[in-house]
Design a protein around this nucleic acid. Sequence first.
DNA 1: AACGTGACGGCTT
DNA 2: AAAGCCGCCACGT
Length: 105
Amino acid sequence: MEPSPSDAKKAILLVISQIPRGRVASYGQVAQMAGLPGRARLVGSILSQLPEGSAIPWYRVINAAGRISFPEGSPSYQRQRAHLQGEGVELKGPRIKLQRFRWNP
DNA sequence: AACGTGACGGCTT
DNA sequence: AAAGCCGCCACGT
């Protein structure tokens, strides 16, 4: 069965909510773990519509290049980076050290 | 219904 | 290392 859009959204948010503190996952990784391979953009699309103050740890989702998917220096970029550094995720310049901080369940 | 946009990603230049 | 191409598809216009 093809998952309905709302099922897909639930699956994606569930996966993101399980990313442990101090670890990160890529959009594509989240999509795959949610049973939606190849649909990384859907993950970004859903996160872009999260309400303010959501309990979902949206900031633990980064792109496959190990970078924050906001323009460097934008308020969103700085917010996300601060969250990550606040829980011990190290960056080398604008790039997260995926080798060390990627979530591998 | 058509079209542009975008918190993506893998592959090729 | 960087930029282009293309597949992916929800959404607003």
